[in-house]
Simulated scan of single mutants.
Amino acid sequence: MTAAMPSRRRGLMLVNPKSRRGGAALEPVIARLEAGGIDVVVERFETPEEVSADIARRRHEADLVIVCGGDGTINSAAKGVLATGLPMGILPMGTANDLARTLAIPDDLLKAADIIVAGHQRRIDLGEVNGHPFFNVASLGLSADLARGLTPEAKKRWGKLGYGLAAIRVLASARPFRAQTIGDDGAAVTVKTLQIAVGNGVHYGGGTVIHEDATIEDGHLDLYSLELKNVWKFGLMLGAFRRGQHGAWDEVRTSKSTEFDIRTREPREINTDGDIVTETPAHFIIRPGAITVFAA
């Protein structure tokens, strides 16, 4: 759907200077946007909490929001764009840029700006766990341990290689835990697992696919549980995970639902789009078509 746009639009550009490409020169991008009819006001922020608060505060001064950063930065804007209904443009400046990949937004910032100028909009789903939004995936276990150990400095220095180096360290010390999962049918399943991931989008972790049939507009969540006895077997499964075909392995349990409850004996941290935000017990829901984005 392409909405009718006024001749000049007002764009609130929110920049995360700490993102991997946060120091990139934005003047050419702003010039491209303004040549395309978007008057840009730039705001740089220091903490994630400022992002949604700034969107809400300036909602009557903007026709659209432009988020410059990685998946964590975009996640920080979710509550603001959800509350205001403003459409969101994305300039991918992070390490993984998984939401941009899902929406086919290129890493080239000028080409990404062209998508915003073109004005084509899509309504996408938003996941939520214990009231915290996520676009890509929320998980506990290995990925939460990975998120805790992967510092912003390591992301900036090593990029995607940093994920691989940190993953090797996490795998070496991984221990399974017991959890109970409950879908919207009310059936409870008890598992002994290394990781449980609940996906809303398509990509996570730098391009890994949550499920080969997943879209960010399908109105449901995709869950998998990694139930390996030997963690090093995970190396044999990497290709299947990259393609979203991991459910073919006996050691991976998968399911789809519009909501999930996950319970563990002891509270376990939950990572949403790269940041630890809550812990179990956890209630996951889907908000279909909740966010409007500019996409190809």
Rank of each mutant, 00 (worst) to 15 (best):
E269G: 14
S255K: 05
S225W: 04
L228C: 12
T280A: 05
E269S: 13
R287L: 15
T258R: 13
E266N: 14
R265N: 14
S255Q: 11
A240I: 00
G244E: 00
W249M: 15
G274M: 09
I286K: 02
N230R: 14
R242E: 00
I276Y: 09
T254F: 08
I291Q: 02
E269V: 03
Y224I: 05
M237E: 04
T258S: 12
S255T: 09
I262M: 12
R263K: 05
F241N: 01
H283Q: 13
H246I: 06
K256V: 11
Y224A: 06
I285Q: 10
P281D: 03
T272V: 15
F241D: 00
P267S: 09
A240W: 00
R263D: 09
T272E: 08
R265E: 15
F241V: 12
W249F: 15
S225M: 01
T272P: 01
T292D: 02
F234N: 00
A240L: 09
R243E: 05
A290T: 07
G247A: 14
W232N: 03
V231N: 05
R242D: 01
W232I: 05
D250Q: 13
L228P: 08
L228H: 12
G289E: 10
T280D: 05
T278V: 12
V293S: 07
H246F: 05
Q245T: 12
P288V: 15
W249K: 12
E259N: 12
L226S: 01
N271Q: 15
L228N: 08
H246Y: 06
P288L: 14
H283D: 02
G239T: 08
T280Y: 06
D261Y: 09
V277I: 13
I270G: 02
P281M: 13
S257F: 09
E269N: 06
T272D: 06
R253L: 08
R243D: 02
K233N: 11
A290M: 08
L236K: 14
L226G: 01
W232D: 00
I262H: 02
G274T: 11
G247T: 06
S225T: 06
N271D: 15
L238R: 08
L236R: 11
S255V: 04
N271E: 15
R287W: 08
R242L: 11
E251M: 13
W249N: 07
F284T: 02
E279G: 09
V252Y: 08
T264S: 10
E266R: 12
R243F: 04
V293M: 07
T280K: 03
G247I: 07
I286T: 05
V293A: 06
N230H: 14
D250V: 15
T280F: 10
E266D: 15
T258Y: 03
T278L: 13
V293I: 08
R287T: 07
R265T: 15
G235R: 04
T292Y: 09
